[in-house]
Nucleic acid binder design. Structure first.
Lengths: 342, 342
DNA sequence: AAAGCAAGCTAAAACGTTTTAGCGGATTTA
DNA sequence: TAAATCCGCTAAAACGTTTTAGCTTGCTTT
């Protein structure tokens, strides 16, 4: 049971050369003109003894690890973990395993992780990039390693990515608030220059400008603990009594915002309308339920992994990178938190 | 930049043998009596050129992958993803990477995954076992691969594990309901013989029996989609009008239960008291907030990864397996959903 | 002066694959 | 009849480590 059989054992037992066995195993038998009889003999035997090739030896020889790295900002965030969940299956089906890690949006940590993955020659990368790791990404691209960014990207870098139409969907969400009669709309975002946050801000600015409303933006420092987020939002509301609605540009800002609103005993949607970017179970269960810009998690995952697998399959062949620059539409799911007159 | 240097190159450039360089690199120089001067020369040079050993070659030679497999039931469930998050850091710090996968509680899938991991010689396993994979686990144990189960375990198998004191903590939760004056307490669980579910059921039975109350149990089929869960719970409530409180034995049963309760327009905690096993953001944010048996996620993770790392470090040495059979206490967090008289 | 020993290093095997280059012999071509 | 081609297979190199066994050299011992 435990005495691992090697390809050499197989060859000996079948009175064949290692080469022949290897060729059959790798499906190159026909092309190398091994006879049908031998092919079948090998296949049958290999099946019988349940021979399993040694991954290390194979990897050493061909430089491939059959591993894909999944670098999220935080794997315990439902947005990332549900993508992780979906990526997993398709990757497994194609013989790849996934190693994950969380950057915590720390460039230093991200760099180290990429380094470690390089050392292990992972075959491909799926990354939510932190600010400041352009150099490392550039090196990956130069090394022709399949790479997809998601959630955000660097416009200056020629990498594949899957993102959301942030500007457009935020614009529509704000329009929705305007249509509902809200006229003093606050925008709560992170103090970050990342592309997805910029896009959302742009959508907001565009919509309020068009509607002739003032811009009222709160920037919470990146990486704040939840209590600080709640405090910041509470202060924002207290300092700006005229606010009649808030847009939260991420799911955890939304969760913090709800706590802040509750602690001020404001009622939703009468005193304050609410829309959040990124759906979550909390928003669906909250009373009232929260209107949100819902990202197509399923499709994001699909596009990511399919792009990666395609690149892996056609490695070396220079493929059109434009094909991998994907912006998906998000859906505005209107719920009770933003509908005044019922 | 991209011309990877090998240990042979280092040796040549330093006019030394491969062996010597390798010994220095692996910290065996002293013991093999390499001179201090040579040691330093090697170390200095290696640092300068930033030599990175080839993992594949090393693995091929010593059979170690420096990879730990993390098999959850579903990585997108917050309970599992937050454990994943915490395990990751400590593992990385010790030079291990983590591959994850979700069994979906499908034994066939679990078996295949274990098989794939075996092929890749992962160095250790952290697993939420599905029913019916005792054989595979037994083989791992026999192969002396470090292994820890969590969330549940098999009492018939001599493996390490980290679980919760399910019976005790459920008992206390039910006692709490009794103390609050609830006298018709329903228990919503999964149709499963897994140890954690058995434990919770036992705790419930013990508490209601002691209090002289009837047992009223709903078993939802494992793997039901959320809508069926909601329906089942709604029917349970309608068929048993006398029920004045419910205990949900998992977080997603709790979420489903809240929806059912809401759809029946019952109010918590007046019409129906609620306690759930396993905390979640939803329970904290719900109105009223939901009393829950909170698992010590941080400590679970810590114990898992520390046990694994310890076993990895002392491989070969027969260690006391009893040491790795860990049952941690859970904390009853009392919130509004189970407190009648305020 | 021969033997023994330690210090300081190294040659080479082994890990298990994939793949290149090529070998005999039979058949076809010129 | 000699040369070229094809068929079916294989020897051996290469991938980059770790580690066992052992080789010099010079010093100490008897």
């Amino acid at each position: 049971m435990k005495n691992k059989r090697t390809i050499r054992d197989i060859a000996d037992e079948l009175q064949l050369s290692i080469t022949t066995v290897s060729l059959v195993l790798n499906g190159k038998a026909r092309e190398k003109r091994i006879s049908q009889e031998v092919i079948e003999r090998v296949q049958k035997f290999v099946r019988e003894v349940d021979y399993r090739p040694n991954h290390f030896a194979r990897s050493l020889r061909n430089g491939k690890s059959q591993i894909i790295a999944f670098m999220a900002e935080d794997i315990s965030n439902p947005f990332f973990s549900s993508i992780a969940r979906r990526i997993e299956d398709r990757a497994n089906n194609s013989g790849y395993k996934i190693v994950y890690c969380s950057t915590e949006n720390d460039p230093e940590k991200a760099r180290e992780l990429i380094r470690a993955f390089k050392d292990r020659s992972v075959d491909a990368y799926i990354i939510t990039p932190t600010e400041g790791i352009e150099e490392e990404l550039k090196e990956l691209v130069a090394g022709e390693v399949p790479l997809m960014l998601f959630d955000r990207y660097f416009s200056g870098l020629d990498t594949g990515y899957v993102v959301i139409e942030n500007e457009k969907s935020t614009y529509e969400a704000i329009r929705h608030l305007v249509d509902q009669g809200y006229s003093s709309i606050g925008f709560v975002t992170l103090d970050s220059v990342q592309s997805q946050m910029q896009g959302r801000l742009n959508g907001y600015v565009k919509a309020v400008t068009e509607a002739g409303l003032p811009e009222q933006v709160l920037r919470v420092p990146y990486g704040s603990p939840e209590t600080s987020i709640v405090d910041a939002i509470r202060n924002f509301l207290q300092d700006n009594r005229q606010l009649d609605s808030l847009f939260f540009s991420s799911n955890y800002l939304g969760a913090g915002g709800l706590k802040a609103i509750r602690s001020l005993k404001l009622s939703i949607p009468e005193d304050i309308g609410v829309v959040a970017f990124d759906d979550s179970e909390i928003f669906r269960m909250y009373t009232p339920d929260i209107t949100s810009v819902t990202q197509p998690v399923e499709e994001i995952s699909l596009r990511l992994v399919d792009s990666i697998l395609y690149q892996l399959k056609h490695e070396g062949q220079q493929v059109d990178t434009g094909k991998y620059k994907i912006a998906l539409p998000a859906r505005l799911v209107v719920r009770g938190s933003s509908v005044k007159n019922k």
